[in-house]
Design a binder for these strands. Structure first.
Lengths: 220, 220
DNA sequence: TACAAAAGTCACCGAACGGTGACATAATGA
DNA sequence: TCATTATGTCACCGTTCGGTGACTTTTGTA
């Protein structure tokens, strides 16, 4: 049985962690700063969560840092349309949504930067969610791809399908998501990278367009 | 006029900064830790460099964090051979060398992680060197590409050249280098990303191979 | 209502941080 | 030789850090 007062305090602390993280960056996250932000004594972090790591874990489990499947695949109707397109277009379109989703999530970007530096309860949880989400999407797309392949097999170009089989889609998505993360993280502090403007939508549009060109070129 | 004793002390401090950075990460870099590592009083950091930022700047200017042009393009003879190949192959081969060069440089990876978090004298200097190096290479390759294009124009497929003109090579190299950096940075602490093994050369070989496949597919 | 447990407050600890002033010593130039 | 400057050592400042013990207040319940 948890008293409502305690639940309220815990909620304050968890929220405060997110606020400190978003406003001051992970290097300023500590028992003192979080407790101060929550307007609560820091001793409660130890009593309720066993320390900052426990609080971090609670934060990791409650918040939604990652784009949802819906956000990436669209509504059921949109996904239907998406599946009708060539496989390369599907990947390209999903990454287009992925880029805009990631760029919006300032808090997630902060945690991803944290991830680059150390492993803790929060970054591990983020890793888990991301890996699971990635596998989910890959599974969905692979199923869709098989349908497409079997359809095309009945009609024409039998060699094309064997070519597509050989493509290392996992490596492709790894490359693209890694690039997306890096550029989104860097874009928080710098304006240009490799002489490309990362501060505007236009610059990012070039990135997305190039992803599409690269993928669609592969299958041919 | 700088006394040899002072020069020696400055050298100690600059080296110590690099050692602390490599051994303990940037979050542990401070006047106390660096001075301790150098076996020198921290007050000398303020007196000789005006503070940690000045020392950082000195460190940034003296060390070589970045792969040299030779390292990426190879010797003169190798570069000659490289230029004979199709443009896509050139890019692919350079990125292959880039990946292995970056992966070796632990200190550079540490600074790149630092770059993801904040801007200071060191990260700004690293940025400058990288941007300059990137432009250098792009210029060299563009010149090589023009020669290739003009040669091909005389022989066959005139449309192909216009297609290649339309390719956003800057965005391509941005994508690939960003992905390389992100994966190399993450590989310091995690074993797999997107279910790909980043701890072995084989995993990285898949990345490099996929880069090559993506690029060579573009031109066709 | 009485009482024990939970919730919350407060003061304090040792350690490390960035930063500074005072001092002793060695090297330099007039 | 003597005064000046540069070099290096040391002690100390205030602040913040993570962490803990002792205390008061509130709450639920027997």
């Amino acid at each position: 049985m948890v008293s409502p007062k305690r639940a309220e305090t815990e909620r304050k602390l968890v929220n405060a962690l997110g606020e400190v993280l978003a406003e001051q960056g992970f290097s300023n996250v500590g028992v003192n700063s979080v407790a101060r932000k929550a307007g609560v004594d820091k001793v409660l972090i130890y009593r309720y969560f066993g320390g900052l790591d426990g609080l971090t874990k609670a934060f990791a489990e409650c918040a939604e840092f990652w784009p949802s499947l819906d956000e990436l695949l669209g509504s059921a109707a949109e996904f239907e349309q998406l599946q009708a397109k060539p496989f390369a277009d599907q990947i390209a379109e999903i990454f287009e949504r992925y880029v805009s989703s990631i760029r919006k999530r300032q808090l997630t970007l902060e945690i991803m930067a944290w991830e680059s530096v150390e492993r803790n309860a929060l970054t591990i949880e983020l890793e888990n969610v991301r890996e699971a989400r990635a596998i989910e999407i890959q599974t969905i797309l692979r199923d869709a791809a098989k349908q497409n392949n079997s359809q095309e097999e009945k009609t024409n170009r039998p060699e094309s399908t064997t070519d597509e089989q050989a493509i290392d889609w996992q490596a492709v998505t790894t490359l693209f998501s890694a690039a997306t993360h890096y550029l989104a993280i860097r874009a928080r502090h710098i304006k240009t990278y490799n002489a490309m403007d990362l501060s505007t939508d236009d610059g990012w549009a070039r990135i997305v367009r190039t992803m599409k060109v690269l993928i669609t070129g592969m299958g041919e």
